[in-house]
Design a protein around this nucleic acid. Structure first.
Lengths: 204, 204
DNA sequence: CCTACCGATCGGTAGG
DNA sequence: CCTACCGATCGGTAGG
């Protein structure tokens, strides 16, 4: 039972769902490496072991692959970030754990989904942006709560919105220069970042 | 006197040089807005008031336009950053001025050159990267000197290379979210960033 | 998911 | 810098 263009809306079997997942991981990896525009359907189908028309059995358009990659990245990132926020830790320690978790969503094995979001937002069609922004806003809200807590503990000072953007920006930018297996470990990076941002607690 | 492909290596008149400059500014603006891959030669020629084959009178390939945009951005950014570094100021104040200058190279009117470098590095052919990296290294070296001075003044602590990358990353990332004319001014942003990074001077 | 294919677009060029 | 054009590539589709 196919719809316009021969692309199914619903999967037909568990096998299809697995194939779709594998295909999406291939998309994420290639989009990260070569960019959305720099990746062709033929790149994707070859890497997935298919022929060039076959990806369209799973996704209606290339754009749909991009959106699916970003949404999956955000959903997984949200889950991990929420888990850390729920921990009962002092603000300073929780902050370092939040940074570490975020670094893992960027550099963990097979975690190419969020980097695509960080790099290729410009390639998302305006009509598709709203849904992704809604997920992003939830991610940002978690970080805002973290920043607010740090401000209230006297560990940060300044406009709270700007602080969130600057802190998250410093971490996100690491996607451009950090390479796993290099000099610094992700733990070291998380610790350096945490100490860079936080000031000594105010003494009263 | 033309060379292979009809594209001149040397300009023939001052008028040609002016046209080339104007064309390059158009390239920078469009590359920033739509990305290198998302910008067509026809976009460029239309915006420059030419016909579609004409940009190739000034640049041999589209790739050459990209490289020229990045190099010009770096040369101008270097000049401005060097001027700030040469000022006789206390580290804390100089740091804020450095940040402010960098923000100006990103958000100043007509300053679309550095943002292209920040966004579209992936589109630079490996063969063209070396020259740009050489300029980038000089830029980074200036910032490293700034970071080193801050460390020696007790205003920063941690691995100096990582600190430089994190600080510059936070600023660079603002290209993704900051819009001139919004809530915060560039001065406010520079001040917030400076205060975020620096700790109170150690008391002895 | 494969086969065979198409229409559109794109970077680039020859010749003036 | 314009005119006229080309070869290659690309996203996507029909039909099975």
């Amino acid at each position: 039972m196919t719809r316009k263009g021969g692309t199914p809306r619903k999967r037909r079997s568990a096998g299809d769902a697995n194939r779709r997942d594998a295909l999406l991981r291939v998309c994420a990896r290639l989009f990260r490496e070569k960019g959305f525009d720099g990746t062709t359907i033929r790149d994707i189908s070859t890497a997935a072991g298919m022929h060039s028309g076959s990806p369209f059995y799973h996704f209606r358009t290339k754009q749909a692959m991009l959106v699916a990659v970003m949404e999956q990245g955000l959903v997984e990132g949200l889950r991990k970030t929420e888990a850390v926020m729920a921990l009962d830790l002092a603000p300073r320690e929780k902050f370092e754990r939040m940074i570490r978790a975020h670094l893992d969503t960027i550099f963990g094995r097979g975690n190419d989904f969020i980097p695509v979001l960080l790099y290729d937002w410009r390639s998302v069609t305006p009509a598709n942006r709203a849904r992704i922004i809604a997920l992003r806003d939830r991610y940002d809200a978690l970080w805002q709560r973290m920043v607010d807590a740090l401000c209230e503990a006297g560990l940060l000072r300044g406009d709270r919105g700007l602080l969130r953007l600057l802190v998250l920006g410093a971490i996100n930018w690491s996607a451009k220069w950090y390479r796993p297996g290099g000099r610094a470990s992700l733990d070291e990076l998380a610790r350096t970042a945490s100490e860079l941002f936080l000031r000594a607690p105010a003494r009263r």
